[in-house]
C-alpha cells in the first residue's frame, strides 16, 4: 500500500513539471528538450538551502523555484528570439550544461555521487494539494488574457503581433511559468527522495516529459493530466524483470501509434469540462429522444 502511495506521489511530482512544459509547448508553441535541467536547478537549490541552513521545505522550495525561473528567464531572453528549431537546440544544450555543472562541482553538489541526507518531508497529501493548486493555476492562467495571448503566439506569431501582442514578452512569460513549475517539482522531488544525483536529470528525462505533453495533446490541459497519470507510473507497472528495459521502446511505439491514429494527441486540443460531458451525452442519447418528439 505504501508502495502505491509512493508511486502516486512521484506521479504527482512529475505531473507538476509536465504541466509547466505543457504551458510552454502546448500553449506557447515552444519546444524545449532541456527542461529536466530546470527541474535539476529547482531540486538542487532547494536541497542545498534546506540542508545548509537547516531550513524547512517551505523556504527551500520557493528558493528552488526562484532559481529555476531566474536561470530560465536569463537564458530565455537571448534564446527565445531564435526560431523554432534553434530554440530546441539551445534548450538541449542548456539541459546538458546544467547536468554537467552539477557533476563537476562536487564540493557543493556532491558531484556524480549525489547529494544525500535531504530531509524527507514531502508527503502524499502535500503533493496532492500542490498538484491541484497547480492545475487550477494553469487553468486560470490559460483562460485569462495572458494565456490567450500565449495561445495566439502558438497559432501565428505574425498575426499575434498584428493584434498587439508583445511576442517576446509572451514567450518569456511561458518560459517563466514552465521553469517555476519545474522548479517546484524539483524541490518536492528532492524532499521526497531524500537524495539527488545528476543522472536523474538527463536528456532522456526531458524527452520523457515532453513526450507526455505531446501524447496527451498539445493544447489540452486535460490531455496533459491524463497522459501524465498514465505514462509516469507506467514503468512501475512494467517492473517485471525484462519489461523495465523495454520501457522506452514502449514509449516509442506509443508515440508512433499516436502519430498514426491521433496526430494531435489523446485529447487533441479539447478539454474535458462538465459542459462538454453534458453535451456528449446529449448528442449520444438526447438526439433520439428529441427526434422522437420533434418529428
Amino acid at each position: 500500500m505504501t508502495y502505491w502511495i509512493g508511486v502516486i506521489t512521484v506521479t504527482g511530482i512529475w505531473m507538476i513539471a509536465i504541466l509547466g512544459i505543457s504551458v510552454l509547448t502546448g500553449f506557447t508553441g515552444l519546444f524545449s528538450m532541456g527542461h529536466a535541467g530546470f527541474i535539476a536547478i529547482g531540486s538542487y537549490v532547494c536541497a542545498l538551502v534546506s540542508k545548509t541552513f537547516a531550513a524547512p521545505m517551505w523556504i527551500g522550495i520557493p528558493c528552488g523555484m526562484a532559481g529555476a525561473i531566474l536561470v530560465g528567464v536569463l537564458i530565455g531572453i537571448p534564446t527565445l528570439k531564435l526560431k523554432g528549431d534553434y530554440f530546441v537546440i539551445a534548450t538541449l544544450g542548456i539541459g546538458e550544461i546544467v547536468k554537467l555543472l552539477i557533476e563537476n562541482v562536487p564540493q557543493i553538489t556532491g558531484g556524480a555521487r549525489g547529494l544525500t541526507d535531504i530531509p524527507r518531508s514531502t508527503t502524499f497529501p502535500l503533493v496532492l494539494i500542490i498538484c491541484v493548486l497547480c492545475v487550477v493555476f494553469v487553468r486560470f492562467f490559460l483562460t485569462s488574457k495572458h494565456g490567450r495571448n500565449g495561445i495566439a503566439v502558438r497559432e501565428d506569431e505574425v498575426a499575434a503581433r498584428a493584434i498587439g501582442i508583445n511576442v517576446a514578452r509572451q514567450k518569456l512569460i511561458g518560459m517563466a511559468i514552465s521553469c517555476g513549475l519545474c522548479g517546484l517539482s524539483g524541490g518536492l522531488l528532492a524532499h521526497y527522495m531524500g537524495y539527488l544525483y545528476p543522472t536523474m536529470f538527463t536528456m532522456a528525462k526531458s524527452n520523457e516529459l515532453i513526450l507526455t505533453v505531446i501524447l496527451g495533446g498539445k493544447g489540452s490541459l486535460t490531455g496533459t493530466i491524463l497522459a501524465s497519470l498514465i505514462l509516469v507510473p507506467l514503468p512501475e507497472f512494467l517492473r517485471t524483470e525484462a519489461a523495465q528495459e523495454w520501457r522506452m521502446v514502449l514509449y516509442g511505439v506509443l508515440v508512433v501509434f499516436v502519430i498514426i491514429f491521433r496526430p494531435s494527441g489523446f485529447m487533441g486540443d479539447r478539454e474535458l469540462s462538465i459542459k462538454g460531458i453534458f453535451r456528449f451525452f446529449k448528442n449520444r442519447f438526447g438526439k433520439k429522444a428529441e427526434g422522437g418528439v420533434g418529428k
Binding site: 488574457k145 490567450r148 495571448n149 495566439a152 497559432e155 501565428d156 498575426a159 493584434i163 498587439g164 486540443d269
Partner: peptide, 24 residues
C-alpha cells in the same frame, strides 16, 4: 492568418487583449 485552431469567437476575444485591464 487566423488563429486556425481557435474558434471564431476565441479569435475575436483574443484580439481584444489590449483593452483588458487586469494584470497577470
Amino acid at each position: 492568418r487566423l488563429f486556425k485552431e481557435l474558434s471564431c469567437f476565441e479569435n475575436v476575444v483574443t484580439a481584444c487583449q489590449n483593452e483588458v485591464k487586469y494584470n497577470f
